[in-house]
Amino acid sequence: MAVALPFALLCVLCAAIAWIDIRDGIIPDWLNLAIAALGLLRIWTTADLSAAIEAIGEGIVIGLVFWLLRRLYFAYRGIQGLGLGDVKFLAAAGIWVGVVGIPMVLLVATMTALACAGVMQLSGRALTAQTSLSFGPFLAAGLLLTVGLQQTGIGF
């Protein structure tokens, strides 16, 4: 029960993020904060305070790295490639999966986004370098799959 309930709540929060990001093109801060708080609560109840503090540190570092990548991409291309909500989501996801889980979250997110873009292209929708695609739903799928794999002990 201590594992299933937080994961079920994470599923609900990720579904809300996916829906809102598809509909409005934004990931609300309160949802990112709810994911981070739920992750901290899970760690604190299953481990201890020091593990929760470590998870906060990992989340901050992950957020800073992706914020820096966002800034560098904008400086290079002159357009935003990653939304600030996505950066905040990755920081919150880092609390759940740690630094070691973020590559898996990104792999799943990018592969599903690429598959979606391929289906859109094959269905006749014209995609250009300026086409915008909400990345939140794909990040949410990546987080859920990664957390699920970590909870079953598969891989990392």
Rank of each mutant, 00 (worst) to 15 (best):
M1W: 10
M1K: 11
A2E: 14
A2Y: 12
A4K: 04
L5S: 05
L5T: 15
A8T: 14
A8C: 11
C11D: 01
C14G: 04
A15D: 02
A15E: 03
A16L: 15
A16I: 01
A18S: 14
I20P: 08
I22V: 15
R23V: 03
D29T: 08
W30V: 14
A34R: 01
A37H: 04
G39Q: 05
G39P: 03
R42D: 14
R42C: 14
R42Q: 14
T46D: 02
D48A: 11
S50E: 12
I53T: 09
I53P: 01
I53A: 14
G57Y: 05
G57F: 04
G59I: 05
I62A: 03
I62C: 02
G63K: 03
G63V: 03
L64M: 15
V65F: 11
F66K: 06
F66M: 07
F66G: 05
W67R: 09
W67T: 12
L68D: 04
L68P: 02
L69C: 13
R71L: 13
L72Q: 11
L72R: 10
L72I: 15
Y73H: 14
F74L: 12
A75I: 08
I79E: 13
Q80Y: 06
Q80N: 11
Q80R: 09
G81L: 10
L82C: 05
L84K: 07
L84V: 14
L84E: 14
D86S: 05
F89D: 05
F89H: 04
L90D: 02
I95L: 08
I95E: 04
V100T: 15
G101F: 01
G101N: 02
I102M: 15
I102Q: 11
I102P: 11
I102D: 08
P103Q: 00
P103E: 01
V108D: 11
V108S: 09
V108P: 07
T110H: 10
M111I: 13
M111L: 15
T112F: 10
A113I: 06
A115P: 06
C116S: 15
C116E: 08
Q121R: 15
L122H: 01
L122I: 04
G124S: 07
R125K: 15
L127R: 08
L127M: 10
A129F: 06
A129S: 15
P137R: 03
P137D: 05
F138N: 08
F138W: 05
A140S: 12
A140W: 03
L143F: 11
V147E: 02
V147C: 01
G155T: 09
G155I: 07
